[in-house]
Amino acid sequence: MLGLMMLVFIVLSGFSFLGSRNQVTPDEITFGTHYATDGKKIFQAYNCMDCHTIVGNGAYLGPDLTKKYAALGPAWLAAFLPSANMWPTEFAVQTQLKDKDIAADAGVDTIEAYYEKYPEAKERVQRRGGKPTYMPTLRFRAGEVSQLIAFLKYTSAMNTEGWPPKVMTGSLEHRLELLHGRVAGSAAATPAGSSSAPGAATSAGGGAGGAVERGAQLAQTLGCAACHSTDGKKITGPTWKGIYGSHEKLVGGGTATVDDAYIIESILKPNAKVVEGYPEGTMPPYEGLVTDEQIQDLIAYIKTL
């Protein structure tokens, strides 16, 4: 009897992993030049599974990650993962979409099309963008973020027999109403309205207050604050506290004095001179995304810190 059951189990197991099932394997999936097989090792090295679940197994603190690539897309993930302590703003996602590999992988190159294709990214940007998260910043090494995205792309492609169950309760507004009641329905619409146009906010911010206030505002809307602290804490990038006028050691030798020229270069071409102790390629280039005025405002703000 026991032997019979073991036989059934072995036969079923054999069928489970036949090539003809067309279950995706990690060696078939890449993201840019990065492989899902490497991503899985990174996933385990950071023990993601003891906060999140993957295929539903793991800890129940963070959300299940299995289908997150399909829901959020590569640009949102690339904006989020390096500085996981803050939810990405629309500008931060847009910046990632400028990357050729990411745009190619997402299959779209404008933020509107991206939102169309990945509605959960839109919901997150509008409801949470710029707010703090519960996830600690993990100081990923160069390339690890892309490898993780490759891994999540792989798990998204997996056939998990319909799990997690499809949400069938309708539109976001309707679901929010079900969760918070009717009164909150209008309240929930307000933050969506105010943050849905960060572009407008940045230019409108120009009118109010002096350069320092505008700079502080920009640090939020552009998403700078996700990586650069203003209280001296070392997160993804160097802290801005006391950085102006300091001398920083650079990757590959040499030092740089942090002055206007260095800051401008670091915003437009951040990988030209990377401060020692920080991974290269983490900060996206902002060339063509920010105006000279905005940079001057940011410099004025940084000087005060």
Binding site: L2, M5, V8, L12, F15, S16, V55, G56, M158, W163
Partner: peptide
């Protein structure tokens, strides 16, 4: 324990990327 537990392990194979027939077993 062994008669029920041996194939009972199948309840871990519902949604992890293994085929649907595990749901029955």
């Amino acid at each position: 324990v062994w008669l029920s537990g041996l194939l009972g392990n199948a309840h871990h194979y519902f949604w992890v990327g293994t085929p649907e027939f595990w749901q029955f077993w």
